[in-house]
Amino acid sequence: MDNLGRMALPPADAAAPAIVADDVVKDFQGRRVIDHLSFTVPRGQVCAMLGPNGAGKTTTIHMLLGLTLPTSGSISILGTDVVADRSAALTRTGFTASYVSLPWRLKVRELLKIYCELYEVPDPDTAISEVAALLDIEQFLDRLGQGLSTGQQTIVLLAKALVNRPEVLFLDEPTASLDPERAVVVRELLRRIADERAMTILITSHNMVEVEKVADRILFVAGGRIVADATAEGLRNQFGAEDLEEVYLKVAAGELGIQ
């Protein structure tokens, strides 16, 4: 058992990267949306996926979570093949996105309790207290989901994603509905827990400031392919841009054939 009461991984899995996507292809009704995508995210890295709308970022995350099956290629999380055993692969992960909601008829505490059960957290009460303190949501624990604002729901969903102390966290536009002040708090928190817990984070975002401040590495996705893979500084140098927004616009223009 590890110090969180979970079964320890065998040596082979303990050395496996957090995320491996190997030559992944996804076709939807004859249209290729992911085109031989390959990348590896080592443990403890915060990796951002940037790209224009329709580039394949959400499709990629959904394949990593087993929500969508790849047409070909392989995907593994912490050494476990997602297609072969999705449930085992996701046990040590967390997920939240701007397009999912809280169940309206559950209290926050109840929601967190349910997800503790789903992720087999050995001590739910402790885990809930810990994540509530981390995200400053103690005052919401006994409120129903329907009674929270959109921003508050976003924070609670982040709590849901963190309650099981995941080793790999998937965030799809996590701060899209937050006010700037709250977004800064969340960004700093994500950076801090990634560093303290050596947690791997894969985040998609259209917020360039967020990406530059949080990510160790940026995958630029366009047309279902990775067109750039570097740090923020590396991308600026590669594209001769002053900031990430300029990089984004250059890549997006290139994809659209705009001069």
Binding site: S87, F95, L118, G145, F170
Partner: peptide
Amino acid sequence: LMDMWDRSILNLYASPMR
């Protein structure tokens, strides 16, 4: 249906739940 109406069903399917 209730999970779908709440738009929370993706939370369930993205978990280890079978």
